[in-house]
Amino acid sequence: MEFREFGLILFAERYEECIAFYRDVIQLKIRNVKDTLVSFELQNGYLMVEQGGVGKNQEKSREQNPNVLRFDVESLIP
């Protein structure tokens, strides 16, 4: 099996703030914008941010949020 690319989907409660974080702080390039989602370019893949997540004031347990996004990078400065 050959994969063309991979994708990560993140459902965010604070949608606009999440988009601003990946666009402005992490400086990911926007690939696509639709009504309720924004896709960002990743090397060999994409990160899709969609509306509809549920946030908490404290850290979620593994049962409440079993997924982790991890980016190993040399620097956040381009």
Rank of each mutant, 00 (worst) to 15 (best):
L42Q: 08
Q43A: 13
L47Q: 05
K29S: 14
M48W: 04
I30Y: 06
E50D: 05
K29P: 10
Q27A: 13
Q27K: 15
G45K: 07
L42Y: 12
S39C: 11
I26F: 04
V49P: 00
F40W: 12
V49M: 01
M48S: 06
V38Q: 00
K29A: 14
V25P: 03
D35C: 05
E50R: 08
E50T: 10
L42K: 08
Q43K: 15
L28Q: 09
E41G: 02
F40N: 02
I26E: 05
L28R: 08
V54F: 08
D24F: 07
L28T: 08
K29G: 09
V54S: 14
V33N: 00
Q51T: 15
D35M: 10
G53L: 04
L42R: 08
N44H: 15
Q27C: 13
E50P: 03
Q43R: 14
V33H: 01
T36P: 01
L28S: 06
I30R: 05
F40P: 02
N32D: 10
N44G: 13
V38E: 00
D35W: 11
L47G: 01
L47E: 05
D24W: 06
I26P: 08
E50I: 05
L28C: 06
Q43F: 09
G52I: 10
V49E: 00
Q27L: 09
G52C: 10
L42T: 08
Y46C: 12
K34P: 00
G45V: 06
N32G: 03
L37C: 12
G53H: 05
K34V: 01
V38P: 00
S39I: 03
M48C: 05
G53M: 04
I26T: 04
V25W: 09
L47T: 03
V54E: 15
L37D: 10
F40R: 03
G53Y: 05
N44Y: 14
N44E: 15
T36R: 15
G53S: 07
N32V: 01
L28V: 07
G52N: 10
L28D: 06
V49F: 01
N32W: 08
D35I: 07
Y46T: 11
D24G: 11
M48R: 04
E41C: 09
F40E: 02
V33A: 01
I30G: 04
V38S: 00
L47S: 04
